[in-house]
C-alpha cells in the first residue's frame, strides 16, 4: 500500500504540489490525470524518492521514502517521463547495471535481465546500442528497467507520450499485463488512455487532488446534476405541457423531430435521476403519449476532466473521493 499524506512541494514562491493525500491499495491500475504542469510528475518523483518534499509523508508498504529510502525504493519500479538511458550501452548492459544497483545477487542478474527482456519483448534489440533504438523500444527498455527485481509497485510517467499509434497499443497491452502482477500507477493527460486502462483515477489540477474514484463513479457523480434526452410520439406543445407537471424537471428544450418519432426534448433534472425518469414515464403514460427513448446524458471522462481542472488555482475545493475500490 502506498500512502501519501499532506504532500507539498514548493519551488520558491511557486507551489507545485499542494497538500495532496491519498492511499493506493495493491492490485489495481491507477491513473494520474491532469493537464500539463498540474503536478503529476512532481508527485511521482517525490513518491519514488527522486525529489524531496517540502512537507508531507510518503510510505511504501510502511517504509518512509525519505527516512527509509533504500528499502522503500526496492519496492518501486519507476519509468520517468524521459526514460533515463545510457545511450552508449546495449539494453542488456544497461539492465545489468540497474539490476546490480537494485541489489539483485550477481548470479541471478543474467536470468533476471532475460526475464524482463522477454516480458517487454526486447529480445531482438537486447544487443543493439540504445542510441540506435526507436522511441518505442527505448520506452520498453525504460519499462524493463522498472520491472527488474519484480517490485510490487510500478510507476510509469506518461509511458505512451511521443509514440506512434501502433506503439501506443503495444505499450497499453504491456501495461495491462503488468497490472495482473503489479500495482501500476501511470500518469497521462490522454483521457482515453486512462479510461481504457485504469481501474481508478486521480485527477490533479493546479497541484491539488480534485478527484479520486473509478472512471464509472466519476461519470455517475457528475451525472447527478442531471440531464436527460427524451423522444416521444407527441407534439412539442404536448411534451412541454406534460413536463410542466413533473416536479423533477427544471428545464427543457423541445423541438419537433420526425426521425425521433415526433419530438425530441433535452431535459434538465433535479434530485434522483431514477425518480425523475419514473415520474416522466407515468405522466406520459397517463396522457397516452408513448415514450420512444429516454436516455440519461452521462458526462464522459473528458467532460469530468474539464469540469474539475478548469477552476482557478485559488478556488480550493474538497476532492471527490474514492467510493468503489
Amino acid at each position: 500500500m502506498i500512502t501519501v499524506e499532506h504532500l507539498t512541494k514548493r519551488y520558491g514562491s511557486v507551489t507545485a504540489v499542494d497538500d495532496i493525500s491519498f492511499t493506493l491499495e495493491t492490485g489495481h491500475i491507477y491513473g494520474f490525470l491532469g493537464p500539463n504542469g498540474a503536478g503529476k510528475s512532481t508527485t511521482m518523483n517525490i513518491m519514488t524518492g527522486c525529489l524531496a518534499a517540502s512537507a508531507g509523508e510518503v510510505t511504501i508498504d510502511g517504509h518512509d521514502i525519505f527516512e527509509d529510502a533504500r528499502q522503500a525504493k526496492r519496492l518501486i519500479g519507476y519509468l520517468p517521463e524521459i526514460p533515463p538511458l545510457y545511450t552508449d550501452e546495449t539494453p542488456w548492459e544497461y539492465l545489468s547495471f540497474v539490476a546490480q544497483a537494485k541489489g539483485i545477487p550477481a548470479k541471478q542478474i543474467p536470468d533476471e535481465v532475460a526475464r524482463v527482456v522477454a516480458e517487454t519483448r526486447l529480445d531482438e534489440m537486447a544487443g543493439r546500442l540504445i542510441r540506435n533504438l526507436s522511441k518505442g523500444y527505448r520506452q520498453r527498455v525504460g519499462i524493463a528497467q522498472a520491472l527488474l527485481g519484480s517490485p510490487p509497485y510500478i510507476i510509469l510517467d506518461e509511458p505512451t507520450v511521443g509514440l506512434d499509434p501502433l506503439q501506443i497499443i503495444e505499450i497499453r497491452d504491456l501495461i495491462r499485463q503488468l497490472g495482473e502482477k503489479h500495482t501500476v500507477i501511470l500518469s497521462s493527460h490522454i483521457l482515453s488512455e486512462v479510461q481504457a486502462i485504469c481501474e481508478s483515477v486521480l485527477i490533479i489540477a493546479h497541484g491539488r487532488l480534485v478527484a479520486f474514484d473509478t472512471p464509472q463513479n466519476l461519470e455517475k457523480m457528475l451525472t447527478a446534476a442531471g440531464r436527460m434526452t427524451l423522444c416521444a410520439e407527441a407534439t412539442p406543445d404536448q411534451v412541454q405541457g406534460l413536463l410542466a407537471g413533473v416536479r423533477e424537471v427544471t428545464g427543457c428544450e423541445v423541438q419537433a423531430d420526425e426521425a425521433a418519432g415526433g419530438c425530441r426534448a433535452e431535459l434538465t433534472l433535479q434530485g434522483d435521476a431514477n425518480a425523475a425518469a419514473r415520474a416522466i414515464f407515468l405522466a406520459f403514460a397517463k396522457a397516452g403519449r408513448p415514450i420512444l427513448q429516454m436516455t440519461p446524458v452521462r458526462a464522459d471522462l473528458e467532460n469530468i476532466f474539464i469540469e474539475l481542472t478548469e477552476d482557478e488555482p485559488s478556488g480550493k475545493k474538497e476532492p471527490i473521493h474514492e467510493s468503489g475500490i
Binding site: C50, A69, Q71, P80, I82, P84, L85, Y86, T87, V98
Partner: peptide, 14 residues
C-alpha cells in the same frame, strides 16, 4: 544533461 541522474536517484543507492 542526459537526465540519467534521475535513474541514479531512483535506484536504492545513496
Amino acid at each position: 544533461k542526459q537526465k540519467t541522474d534521475q535513474l541514479l536517484s531512483l535506484l536504492p543507492l545513496s
